[in-house]
Amino acid sequence: MVFPGSNCDLDAYHAVIEAGEEASYVWHMEKSLEGFDAVILPGGFSYGDYLRCGAIARFSPIMASVREMAESGRPVLGICNGFQILTEAGLLPGVLLRNRDLKFICKNVFLRVESTASPFTKALESRSVLKIPVAHGDGNYFVDGETLWSLEENGQVIFRYCSADGEVAPQFNPNGSVSNIAGVSNARGNVLGMMPHPERVCEEITGGTDGLLLFKSMISFLKGGMAGELVNS
């Protein structure tokens, strides 16, 4: 997906290519996603973050098709601003508030894989640790206590901020997100929103390849691959 103000669309495109699949850009004014198996809503500043991050993009004409894709069970990944758009659209629970310390944070963080129930983590090892960068000003994930309980109960928390060896504690939480949450899915598991940028770490030249695992997992899911098949590769 490309919205006016998207700026991680090229990286997301190349991540899919790097993972061995075909990809195309779809402008937000399009109406159909026919022929696509999955959709990625990239990071950036759609509509200049006017009003609230993602608030206006969610009314783009293409969003009806994104909703259909989500409801059909196909993989939908929202990264950073894409995550904000999916929460604004009601396709994911919660909201992204201003970072606790008000600063725009741009650095590498560690994520622990909390659930392998989503297409994007299906082929990964549960509790494994990924090194992926964040770059956001509004990434402080919030849900009320009751919703948080149901997310935990349903296994919808997919990633949590942690230390290099996988310890989840407040000091490894960059932005104040409730319960160190870095990524959540819908109840069915096929829609994932995450603040960190896996598309930025898909080649060694950009500092790592941990992000590529998510895209490979998604492709493996679409091809009917086995759970955990990337663990030893």
Binding site: L51, R52, A55, I56, F59, T87, E88, G94, V95, L97, F142, V143
Partner: peptide, 8 residues
């Protein structure tokens, strides 16, 4: 629908 996000 737009001006406020009633979650927050």
């Amino acid at each position: 629908s737009l001006l406020a996000n009633t979650v927050m």
